[in-house]
Design a protein around this nucleic acid. Sequence first.
DNA 1: TACAAAACAGTCCGATCGGACGGTATGTCG
DNA 2: CGACATACCGTCCGATCGGACTGTTTTGTA
Lengths: 199, 199
Amino acid sequence: MAAPRRTQQERSASTRARLVDAAFACLLDGGYAATTLGAVQQRAGVARGTLLHHFPTRTALMLGVLDDIAGRRLAVLAAAPSGSAGPADWDALVDLVWDDLRSPAFSAALELWVAARTDAELRAALVPVQERLFGTVHRSVTALVGDADPRVPTLVQFSIDLLTGSRLAGLLEERAGTPAIVERWRRALPLLAAAPDLL
Amino acid sequence: MAAPRRTQQERSASTRARLVDAAFACLLDGGYAATTLGAVQQRAGVARGTLLHHFPTRTALMLGVLDDIAGRRLAVLAAAPSGSAGPADWDALVDLVWDDLRSPAFSAALELWVAARTDAELRAALVPVQERLFGTVHRSVTALVGDADPRVPTLVQFSIDLLTGSRLAGLLEERAGTPAIVERWRRALPLLAAAPDLL
DNA sequence: TACAAAACAGTCCGATCGGACGGTATGTCG
DNA sequence: CGACATACCGTCCGATCGGACTGTTTTGTA
C-alpha cells in the first residue's frame, strides 16, 4: 500500500468520492434503473456494508451524485471569465452553455431529473438544487454579457432553452443539423440584441 | 355484458388497446422503471398470461406504447390546418409545438427517450420513429408557415428546440418565467424572419 | 355440431433488488 | 496503552422483477 497513514477524514472522503464516481459512471452508461447498489459497490471496489455506511439508502447515494454534479457545474461557471466590460460577448455565452450541455454531467443529470419527476423524495431534493443552479448559471452568464440592457435576461434564457432542446434532440443520435443550428443562433443573437422593439 | 358478439380481431384489438393505455398511464405516473408487467397487468384488469400473449416481452410492450404515442402525435399534426397561404403564421407554429410539448404524451415519450439512451433494443426502435416524427413535425409546421423563405426551416428548428428546452426546465416544477419566455419568443420570431442578414 | 386456433387465465421459478445486521480493522483520544 | 468511535466488510432476508409454463374459455370454420 502506498498510503501508510491516513486520517479518518481522508479515508472517509476518499471512499465517498470513489462511491460517488462509481455511481456517476453507472448512471452514465446504464441509466437510473441500472444504478443499483450492487453495480455501484462492485464498480467502486467496495463491500456492500461500506456503501450503506456512507449512504444509508439508494436515494441518499443519488443525492450525493447530484451534489457532486451540481458542485462541478458551479465550479465551471465560477471559473468562467466574468464580464470583460467590453461589448456583449454572445459567442462566449453560447460556448459556455453548449459545452456544459455536452458534458457527461448533463446526461447524468438528465437521468436524475427524469427519475425525479416520479420520485417524490428525489424531487424534493432536486428542485432547490435546480433553482440554485439555474440562478447561478443565469447570473454567471449575464455577467459575461453585461446587464445594461433589460433584454439581456430574456436572450440568455432563449439561448439556454434553445441549446438545451437542441441537445436533447441529439441525445440518442447526433442530429446532423445541430451544429448548423447552433452556429445560426450565434448569428441570430446580436440581431435580437439590436432589435429595438423586443420587450 | 354490453358486447354480445365481437370478432376475434375486435376482442384482441380492444385488449391490446387497454394494455397500451395502462402502460402509458404507468409510464406517466410512475416512470419507466415502475412500468412493470405486474403494474400494467393490474391496471388493465387483465391476467399475466394475457399481457405476455399480446406482448411477449416488456420491451415489446414499450414499443407498443411508443407506436401509440407516435401515432397520436402524428394525428394531431395531420389535423393541423395546412398553410393558409397567408403571411407566415408564427403564432400558430408556436401554439402547435407548445401544445404538443405540454401534453402527457411528451412526458411519456421523454421517459422512453431517456431509457433508450442506455437500452440498445429500445433505442434501435426509437431512432427511426424519432426521425419520422421530427420530419413530419418539421414538414407539417413548415406547411403552416410557408416555405418561400429559405430561413423558415431554421426558424422552425429554433422554435422547436427553444420550446423543448423550456418545457424540460419546467418538468419538475412550473418555472415562473416560462409563459413570458414563450410570449417573447412569439414576438422575436417575426423580427428574425424579417432580418435581412440571417443565413 | 365437432374441432383447431387464438384469446385468456393463473401459477411457478430463478435472478436480483434494496436494505438490515453483526463482526472486524483502523484511526482517535484520555 | 487501553477504551472508544468510526470506517469497512460480508452474509442474509423478504419482496419483486421478467417471463416460462400449463390449463381453460371463446371464436371462426368444416
